[in-house]
Amino acid sequence: MHPDLESLFYKSEENFLEATEIKLFKHHIASLADRLALYECLRDQEVAIFQPVADQLLQAFPQQDPKLLEKSLKQWITVMRYATMAMLLNNPEFLQRRLLEWLTDVIQAHQTQAIEAKLCQLLQARLKEVVPGAQLGLIQPLLDQAQTTLLGSSSVYQMAN
């Protein structure tokens, strides 16, 4: 459930919403339409977003076992799906609890941080090409959250280079 809307529904149980709360409600509804549009865009373009990322990843790690690269790609496709849902719900906790808490140790065990960091970098660049600037602001914080949680602060250095 959308936590901001849920909070307003909860408040409206005992009395009418006040003007400021109605204004907030309208803002969330308008924002929800934008979020839904972006959700549909990301869902429909999943392959178009990830195929160039996969091709560039293969070029970046030519010696690496393709199965390992496929595994990392699948993990980031999953991250993207959960991030998209979290964006629609406007709920970063959804991404954190439903995926990242579980995936972090799995990625660490695979010791594929360099691949994951590169993949994240390619994905972020690809999204800038596909998603209009205004909408990018809706999904970007969630990808940053995924990057920080999964790759830690070391990835910030790698991304910067």
Partner: peptide
Amino acid sequence: MISVADLTKESYLPGNYFAPDAY
């Protein structure tokens, strides 16, 4: 070449089964 279409053919990509809010 890695085919993303093949990777996403299986539409079910599970996450954290034991996430407290879901479990």
